[in-house]
Amino acid sequence: MAAAASRRVLPGFGLTLGYTVGYLSLIVLIPLSAALIKTFSLSWEHFWQIVTAPRVVASYKLSFGTSLLAAAINSVFGLMLAWSLVRYSFPGKRIIDALVDLPFALPTAVAGIALTAIYAGNGWIGQFTEPLGLKIAFTPIGILIALVFIGLPFVVRTVQPVLQDLEAEYEEAAASLGANRWQTFTRVVFPLLLPALLTGFALAFARAVGEYGSVIFIAGNLPMISEITPLIIITKLEQYDYVGATAVATVMLFVSFALLLVINGLQAWTSRRMGRAR
């Protein structure tokens, strides 16, 4: 019978599904729907007016723009880091490997304060860049640096295991068939890594969009220039404007969800193309 034919290692599909849905509801869906329901108390015109106010729109551009850029930077450098950690052995490798996870562990406010102290005009790095006309702390560049910092582990940790599984034979085969190094990388290695890289990109991006603690110290928080969307939400809360805050949060939620859906779709597409359909 069908049930016997598809016998699983762990019994109880019903139980598993129930557990999955129940747990997700409790942890994710209920809090999020509370935000949505609060938003529904607004009329459509009022909602639209809140979420398209010039200050709020400027903050979307800043938040999503810097988050995408930070995730892209992390994809490039995270890949390089993962590569050198997997393919080479050198003294202190394990320490560097552990260092990668630090941005996960550090309270984000500490990260923000530390970065600000370093990049401010009187900081270790800021004192050299500012005379050259490059202000980092209290500008969007500072936001970008904070987001790169907190997003780094995601790319490294998603690419690393895939890279470890990637046999060196592929590269040897490519070389023996006459491919040069560039061709081997772009045609053989990179396509195999791309799905993992996209996952890392998506995670780093999602983390960056929601980040508040570290950014707030280094951003400068000037309206229209360096105000991130989470700060707009906090500002509205400080003014007891719960509904306005959830309206902006809802927009953020939907945009993030749409972008993640696209990235995940891309990831599924690339892994199918590589013949590793899940």
Binding site: I216, G220, L222
Partner: peptide
């Protein structure tokens, strides 16, 4: 003339 707007007085 304000280069940074912190969220609180201590900041």
């Amino acid at each position: 003339n304000v280069p940074v707007l912190d969220s609180g007085a201590r900041g």
